[in-house]
Amino acid sequence: MTSLRSYSNDFTKMVFVFAFLATVPLWISSVGLYDYIAIEIIIWCIYAMGYNLALGYTGLPSFGHGAFFGIGAYAMAMYQVHEGGTSLWVGLLLSILAGAGAGGLSALFMSHRRGIYFALMTIAFGQVFWFVAIKKREYTNGEDGLLNLERLPVDFGIFSLDVSSNQSMYFLGLAFFMLVVLGLWTLIHSPFGYIIQSLKQNETRTWFLGYNVHLFKWISFTLSTAISGLAGGLFALTQRSAFPDVMSLHWSGIIVMMTIVGGGLVSFWGPVLGVMFYFIMRDFLGTYTSTWILWFGVSFMAVILFEPHGIAGLWMKISQRIFKMSPGHRLLPPERTLVPTPEPSNELV
């Protein structure tokens, strides 16, 4: 089991990350970027961390997660535009529920599949949702999107905080990021977390241990879509609009690539690293060439071929060599790979 020391290790890391992120608005313009990008990054971090619950921890290859991010965005947008809503909490709650609802519905059909068939189904669902978003103009305004949203204030009853400035919006995003991280961390270190990691390694074995594997896959997927919905709602607030394009296969692919390149397959913080990598490419490389996203895709392909454990995996390898220490504490064997343990071979000698 995990030692107390490893818990405190993890908490220290978390505190460092939060503290670092809290300082971002102070220095972001000095590196040639601005607050708006910081908000994008923090929201995509929420999205990616939620996504990795499904991919990295449960082994569910979802290529259609953009749909749930988009549905969360539309929930917030439609709440404002169609219902005239003014409560941030209600709006975000709707985003979460919408994401979870769509995700839960999809997962009903998918949770008894795995591997390639699961992946293809996620693509199909993603396309269906994206298509509906484009065609049902009476709700979503189609490709023109829902515009002119308000950044609803953070209302605690006694006082409320205005988030119309980018800096304050960033801190709102950061607050949710911290909540999501804490929540996910607790979840992953709970019995639920053990079970989903076990089923990623070997579904059959987990069945035999008495766990309803389909149910756990469903729960994990739905939770991850709920988080994606939350991120989508925050995204709608940030850009003050909601469009269908985040639901396309293209954008669903980007979250996959971010998560894997960062090392989500082996590391809790992998997705965050991946998001950072993407935005560094976009905002630094992107100033020189419009083909930067092509290079991002190419680096993803290279990662798959040469270092499937991504940036985090590379870091672990390097720090193992430099510091000659074990690569951190993990609940299961060190190699949390994408590949579930193959069923025992029947090959006779």
């Binding site: 290859p61 390639i116 895709g297 392909m301 071929l305 994408l338």
Partner: peptide, 30 residues
């Protein structure tokens, strides 16, 4: 490129071709 993924879980090949699909589409768009 796929050769490196032969013998591993087919999901690696799937991911690789998925990446290739997106890169190709983007290249076309460019």
């Amino acid at each position: 490129g796929l050769r490196r993924t032969y013998g591993k879980d087919p999901l690696y090949g799937l991911l690789f071709t998925f990446g290739a699909a997106l890169v190709l589409e983007e290249a076309i768009r460019q």
